[in-house]
Design a protein around this nucleic acid. Structure first.
Lengths: 180, 180
DNA sequence: GGGAAATCGGTTGGATCCAAACGATAGGCT
DNA sequence: AGCCTATCGTTTGGATCCAACCGATTTCCC
C-alpha cells in the first residue's frame, strides 16, 4: 500500500474561515460539491464537540477523584436537588432509560451512596434517596464541578456566553416541543 | 413514608424567566442561596441537553434503520471523509479511545462494513478502510442524517443559528487550546 | 549491536447504555 | 370477581466506553 498522508497534508484545503478545524475543512472538501447542508452539519458537529470536550474536562477535574461516572454524578445531583424521588422521575431528570438507571443505582447502592425504598401503597414504585455518605460526596464534589463549569464558561466573553445560553435554551425548547 | 410530591408541585418556584425548564427552576431553588455559579451551570447544562436531544433525534431518524450506533456511524463517516486511515487517526477523529475503537471496528468488520490492514513497513500500524458495503451504507445513511441535521437547525432562526455556530466554534477552539 | 524508551493496537475488568421483554402491581370495565 | 390494559422497575442480550496494562514493534542512543 502506498504511504498514507499525514493530517498536515490537508492544510492547503480551501476554507471559509481560519476558524475552521481540520475536520470541518475535510468535510468541506468532501461534501461541498454535493447536495449536503454544511451549515446544519456545522451546528450539530460543534454542539457535539463542545459537549464532548466539556464533559471530558469536568470528568477529569471533578468526577475522577470522587470515583464517579458522569451518570452516577448526575443521579446523585438529581437526588440532591429534588430530594428522595421515584425511579421513573430520576431516570427522566438524569436523561437515561429506566434500564440504565437500574444499573447505575446498583453501582451507587453498592457503594452505600444511595438507598432504594419500595412504596408503601403502590408496590410498583421504588424511590431512591441519598445516604449520608452520598450527601457528603455530592456536597464535596459539586463545588469542584461548578468551579470547572465556571472556568469553562470564562473561556468566552460574557456577552457571547449569554448569547450562547439564550440560543441553546431556544433550541432545547424547540427540540422538546418538536419531539414525536 | 409520606406521599411523594408530583413534579407539577414545583411549578410555583420563583424563576428568572419563563424560558427556564423545571430542572433549571429546581436548581435555582436549591442553589441560589449558596456559593454556586448558576450562569456557568446554565451554559454547561444547556449544551448537554441540546447534545443529548439532537443525538436522540439523529439516532431515531437516521441511524436506527441502518442498524448503526452513534460511534459506528462516526467511524464510517470518518473513513468516508478521509479515506483509508490508521487506527490512531480514526480514534482521534471519532473522539473515542483506541480501546473503544477496537471494539467498534470489531463490530463493523463483523458486518463486512470495514476491513483492517497491517502496514507493510511499520508493523505496529493498522489501517482501516470501508468495504463496498460500508461505502454504500454511509452514502445511503448520510443524506438522511444530514436532512435531520437541517430539520434541527431550522428550529431556530438563521441569525441565531449563525450566532450559535460562531459561539460554539470559539468555545471549541478555546477548550482545545486550554487543554492540559 | 544491544539496551532503553516510546508507540502501536488490542486485551482486561468493570461500568454504562439501549431496546425489548418480563413479572409484579394497579386501575378500569363488565 | 374476573379479565384486560397499563405502568413500574428489573432482567436480558449485546454494544459501547474508559483507564490501565500488555506484547509487538520501532526509534534512538551509547
Amino acid at each position: 500500500m502506498t504511504d498514507l498522508p499525514d493530517l498536515a497534508d490537508f492544510d492547503d484545503l480551501a476554507v471559509q474561515s481560519d476558524e475552521l478545524g481540520a475536520q470541518e475543512q475535510a468535510v468541506l472538501s468532501r461534501l461541498a460539491d454535493a447536495d449536503h447542508d454544511l451549515e446544519a452539519t456545522a451546528l450539530a458537529s460543534n454542539v457535539f464537540r463542545v459537549a464532548t470536550a466539556m464533559r471530558r474536562r469536568l470528568e477529569q477535574a471533578a468526577l475522577r477523584r470522587a470515583g464517579l461516572s458522569w451518570t452516577a454524578f448526575k443521579v446523585l445531583w438529581v437526588l440532591w436537588i429534588w430530594g428522595e424521588r421515584e425511579t421513573r422521575f430520576v431516570a427522566v431528570e438524569a436523561d437515561v432509560t429506566k434500564g440504565t438507571l437500574t444499573g447505575v443505582v446498583d453501582t451507587l447502592a453498592g457503594r452505600g451512596l444511595v438507598v432504594r425504598r419500595r412504596h408503601d401503597d403502590d408496590r410498583r414504585l421504588v424511590s431512591i434517596a441519598l445516604t449520608d455518605a452520598g450527601h457528603d460526596l455530592i456536597t464535596d464534589t459539586f463545588p469542584v464541578f461548578n468551579a470547572e463549569e465556571r472556568a469553562i464558561a470564562d473561556l468566552v466573553a460574557p456577552d457571547e456566553q449569554a448569547a450562547l445560553v439564550r440560543g441553546l435554551r431556544h433550541l432545547v425548547a424547540a427540540l422538546e416541543e418538536d419531539a414525536p
